[in-house]
Amino acid sequence: MLKIGEYNELVVESRVEFGLYLDSDNGRILLPNKYVSDEFNIGDTLEVFVYTDSEDRLVATTLQPKGIVGDFVFLKAKEIVSFGTFMDWGLEKDLLIPKSEQQERMLPPRKYLIKICFDEKTARVYGTAKISANCDKNTQDLAAGQQVDLLIHSLTEIGIMAVVDNRYFGMLYRSETYQDLAVGDRCKGYIMRLREDNKIDLTLKEPGYSSVKGSGNTIVDILNTAGGFIPCHDKSSPQEIKEIFSMSKKEFKRAVGGLFKRGILALEKDGIRLKQGEKPENPEKLEEPEKINPWNSKS
């Protein structure tokens, strides 16, 4: 079945003066000459993007848009008209964001996060800036601890809002996020909890002890970069630890405990030092650090 606003594999049916006609279950679709290569022949199967032109006729192109129907993408506002805003999405015909689908007035040349949608009644592709309202509210396919792809949507006082797996909407709490993120960033994250109201709480750290293993790697790498010593210890402020290691003070102490127990770190009164020649082959093989408080053992 032909999918408008997506890539389709269509067979070249005939050649005309102004392009190639491609066969589809919706009838013939024109691939204009500007997109036709000398290598294309009748009977060939071509992968093309199909959408409607300015006269609402189905047309094919070999150009690659910045997204297809269902995708969340950042697009630049190009032109304001009485009924909406046109966005540059990499094709000859710009993508319309109707006024009714805007959260705020969309001004060129700013970029906005858009979901590309398809209107079955008009067979037109359009965009919406109402992101959370157009995300899937059914989270039954998700589970706590699951790794997901995040696209940062907005920054608020409480948290960082993100599109999850190009489908859902969730939030990273600022108090639990130790990495600088900006709108438009893509990163990996984890499901921290699925709430009864179908909202999703996210985290950048793998839940449970697994995150501490990765933190051990981080501490060793930063120590190596700093020449083996960093003036950070159990009396350092949470903010100082966050700025240097991008982790909470609790996680820092747990990870340092594991590294100390393995003899990788030496604890000095004014900081931590990587023992000479002690970069571990596999820092992830840490033992449970809660069983030891290295700073208490020195007192």
Rank of each mutant, 00 (worst) to 15 (best):
G208P: 10
V220Y: 12
S248C: 05
H233Y: 00
G228A: 12
S211N: 14
S211V: 13
I200F: 03
P238F: 13
S215G: 07
K199P: 05
D180Y: 13
S248G: 07
N224L: 06
F229I: 10
E206H: 14
N198Y: 01
I191R: 14
F252Y: 12
E240G: 12
P238E: 01
L194Y: 05
S248H: 06
M192D: 10
S175F: 01
V220N: 09
L259G: 01
D234M: 04
P207K: 14
F229K: 06
K188Y: 07
L202D: 02
F252G: 00
G227H: 00
F260N: 03
T225M: 03
G189N: 05
T203F: 06
L259W: 04
K213E: 12
N224Y: 00
S236K: 08
R193A: 02
S211C: 11
P231F: 05
F229E: 12
K199G: 04
G184R: 10
L204Y: 13
H233W: 01
F252P: 01
S210H: 13
I241Q: 10
Q239A: 10
F260A: 08
K242H: 10
K235P: 01
G216P: 02
E251N: 09
P231M: 03
E196K: 15
I219F: 05
P238N: 03
A255W: 12
S246E: 15
G184C: 09
G228P: 11
S175G: 00
P231G: 02
Y209T: 04
S211F: 13
Y209K: 06
S236H: 03
T203P: 07
K213F: 01
P207G: 08
V183H: 13
E206V: 09
Y178H: 14
L259C: 10
K235M: 02
D185H: 13
K249G: 00
C232A: 15
I241P: 11
I219C: 07
K250N: 02
R186F: 06
K213T: 07
L223I: 03
V212R: 11
I241V: 15
G257N: 11
A226V: 00
S237N: 07
I222T: 07
T218Q: 11
L194P: 03
E196P: 10
L194M: 09
G216E: 12
G258Q: 11
G228S: 09
S248F: 03
